[in-house]
Design a protein around this nucleic acid. Structure first.
Ligand SMILES: [Mn+2]
Ligand SMILES: [Mn+2]
Ligand SMILES: [Mn+2]
Ligand SMILES: [Mn+2]
Lengths: 236, 236
DNA sequence: GGTAAAACTTAGACATGCCTAACTTTTACC
DNA sequence: GGTAAAAGTTAGGCATGTCTAAGTTTTACC
């Protein structure tokens, strides 16, 4: 039980630092601060700060310029976080049929908001749907058909009157279609050279902690947009 | 329209302020700052600050000491947030069978992490399970039985205390006890044939320079395990 | 309508966690 | 081994969103 207490003391950002360190410990022989910074998309000085905080909580061992390793307590918490992430991700992609890559991005956010009981139930629900068939036909097929039927119907209604909105207003996981570009000619040209043309579908993959920049996916490519640029793109 | 371009993403805290204001607007004739503070468990000065931020985003109308009301845009966003919360809450309590009150608490956290697509799918999954029966018996009954069966088993094994961790995290010289094997049936079978059964003590003798494979000792025998295999063994 | 209480706002402090810039240590290579 | 590059740290700044304490406006009531 004491471990659950300390787990709750970790902010979601530091849960991610711990998880990243555990992931690296499992696959590399040495953990580089720079690698943590790359994966978490922060500057090295932020990693140093995180390492100091994690050490204060007895989750890692570490000294300046020295090697980084999870303590036993750190390993225990890592496993809990890992299992949460895995259960949520697989639930999103297998049962809710969210696009695989999007499921990973969203699971990274949701993992910090669910209790162990919820992730355990998601795991069991996923397993249940895998192993139980419904009157001969697989239940997943029926569920898939149900999603598709409802999606088509909601598309019918959406087509009627799409309310315009700005790309900068979308959150991670949401998508839209480019309607128009604003701004001066040079900036519009730059955006179009990135593949952002009228009618293109855009998916927001991730938004940096302070809201700038945002990572989007257009024509299968990932782009990084400043908020000011995203504010020039009108969507429908 | 001019302020359209100044819209920024709402932080999850401000999403909650907006949602609380919308909820109050629906049920009270006048919105009291003090009531928002009570519901959100913050001090009145924090509410004032939030009101100023929401007004800057054109989500509410408001002046010092004056009445508070959602703008049209505020109402649109409130509706999106409301639907997300409702879908998540009902999914948690109806489909994952999380305690009603706990579901409300968790939905309040999860709502900020899910995309509209995810909450829509949660809604549809919930609806699907309500309306589709599986071979006579309701599917929810089967799902419930599945949850209960697994819960009982995990209660049996949990006893109390030591928190699990992965064998792959042990370093040379460290030991632990096998708690559970993960992975597909064939791999689990292979590991069990090596003598890796529940309750067995394991000692890590040596880890290869690149971290893979690791040499362990079980039942007095030395075994060589790949890192990927060690990652399937949950220890205590 | 005067006055006290309640409601609300403002100012300033503080914690978090990010950043940049300058500095220190380690490493890589000749 | 000497030196430059890379890696990592420290210091200081900034945005967010909370709080306390003090000030202002509104309300309630005589
Ligand atoms: Mn992927
Ligand atoms: Mn995460
Ligand atoms: Mn309740
Ligand atoms: Mn909430």
């Amino acid at each position: 039980m004491p471990n659950f207490y300390h787990l709750k003391d970790l902010s979601s950002n530091f849960e991610d630092y711990l998880k990243t360190i555990g992931d690296l410990e499992a696959e590399k022989q040495q953990i580089r601060s720079k690698e943590i910074a790359r994966i978490m998309k922060v500057k090295p000085s932020s990693v140093t700060n995180a390492l100091q905080v994690l050490r204060e909580q007895d989750l890692i061992t570490y000294r300046p310029y020295g090697p980084i390793a999870l303590t036993h307590k750190g390993k225990q918490i890592w496993l809990i976080l890992h299992q949460k992430y895995k259960a949520v991700k697989e639930f999103l992609s297998d049962t809710l049929e969210i696009d695989h890559h999007m499921a990973e991005v969203l699971a990274h956010k949701i993992e910090h908001a669910v209790s162990s009981e919820v992730s355990e139930r998601m795991f069991l629900l996923n397993e249940f749907l895998n192993t139980h068939s419904s009157c001969g036909a697989g239940i997943r097929e029926k569920l898939h058909d149900y999603y598709m039927k409802e999606t088509k119907e909601s598309e019918k209604t959406i087509d009627r009157e799409p309310t315009p909105f700005l790309l900068s207003f979308l959150k991670a996981g949401e998508k839209g279609t480019i309607h128009k570009l604003k701004g001066d000619a040079a900036t519009r040209e730059k955006l179009m050279n990135m593949g952002m043309n009228r009618g293109q579908d855009v998916l927001v993959e991730r938004i940096a902690p302070l809201g700038d920049p945002m990572e989007i996916s257009v024509r299968g490519y990932s782009l990084s947009l400043r908020k000011s640029e995203a504010g020039l793109v009108i969507m429908k």
